[in-house]
Design a protein around this nucleic acid. Structure first.
Lengths: 127, 127
DNA sequence: ATAATAGTGGATAATAGTATCCACTATTCA
DNA sequence: TGAATAGTGGATACTATTATCCACTATTAT
C-alpha cells in the first residue's frame, strides 16, 4: 500500500503528535525507538516532513521534533503520504495501462476508481 | 497497489482470456506485444501462472498460451494476484505495525480494514 | 569562548524488485 | 530423423528503494 518510508513517516507523525499533545519535544532517537525504525533512515524522513512544515525541527541541545499543538488536528494523513510517496497512490490505472481512462476504461477501471476514492476520503482524516 | 509483475500478469491473463474466447492460442511474443511488457520478464510471469494452472502452456511449434474456455469466467483476479504477489495486500497493518490487531488497533486500523475488504471483494470478480 | 548536544546533508552500501541472456527441452512437421 | 519453433529454467545485470556513515552546522549551557 505505502512505501516503507511512508509507513515510518506516518508512524513518526502519530508519535510526535501524541507527545506534542503533552507538550513534549522528542529526539530522533526517541522517535526511532518508539516506532521501531532505523535511526538514520528515519532522520531522512523527518527531514522531509520538516521541510514540508508538517513537523518542526529544532537543533542544539534540548532540540528535537514537535508539532504545533493548535494545528495538530488539521494535519491530514494525505499530506504526509503525498510528502513522502508523492501522488503515486492516486494516479494511473490500477493495471498500469497508459491507454486507460474514463473513455477507454480497462476491465477493472471503475472498481479501482471507487476504491481509490474510498482511500482518499479516508486519508483526509486527522491523526 | 500491485507489483509490476502482478500488473503484467493481470493484463496478460485478460489478453489470453480474450483470445482463448475466440479459440486462439497466443505465443509469448504476442502476449508481450499486446500488453507492452518486456518479453523475457513476461515469460517468467506466464510460467508462474501456468504452474498455478491459471493458464495452459504448450511447447513446440503451434504451442503457446491459452485458457480453458469453460473455466474462463471462474478465474478470479484474486487468484492471479496471490499467485504473483502472495497475500501481501491482505495481511499486516497498513502502517506496518506488528502490534496492530483488532484488540490493539492502530489509529487507522479500522479504516484500512474497510478499504481492504472493498478491495478483496472487488478482486473476486471475473476477467 | 568552548564543549556537548542534536539535527542536516551528501556520499555510499545493501537489498529487493525488475529485466535480460542463453543454453536446454519438448513438440511439430517435412 | 532432423530442423525449426516455442516454452523452461538458471544465471546474471539493472534500478529504485531502503538503509547507513560521516563530516558539518546550529544551538544551548557552562
Amino acid at each position: 500500500m505505502f512505501s516503507k518510508a511512508c509507513e515510518y513517516g506516518i508512524r513518526a507523525a502519530i508519535y510526535i503528535a501524541e507527545q506534542s499533545n503533552q507538550n513534549k519535544k522528542v529526539s530522533l532517537k526517541d522517535v526511532a525507538k518508539a516506532i521501531e525504525s532505523p535511526e538514520a533512515y528515519t532522520s531522512k524522513i523527518l527531514q522531509k516532513l520538516s521541510r514540508c512544515n508538517i513537523i518542526n525541527a529544532s537543533k542544539g541541545p534540548t532540540g528535537g521534533f514537535s508539532m504545533d499543538k493548535q494545528g495538530l488536528d488539521k494535519v491530514k494523513l494525505s499530506t504526509i503520504v503525498s510528502a513522502l510517496d508523492g501522488d503515486s497512490i492516486y494516479v494511473g490505472c490500477g493495471l498500469g495501462l497508459k491507454q486507460c481512462n474514463a473513455k477507454m476504461p480497462c476491465p477493472v477501471h471503475n472498481q479501482f476508481k471507487e476504491i481509490r476514492n474510498e482511500l482518499k476520503k479516508m486519508l483526509e482524516t486527522t491523526t
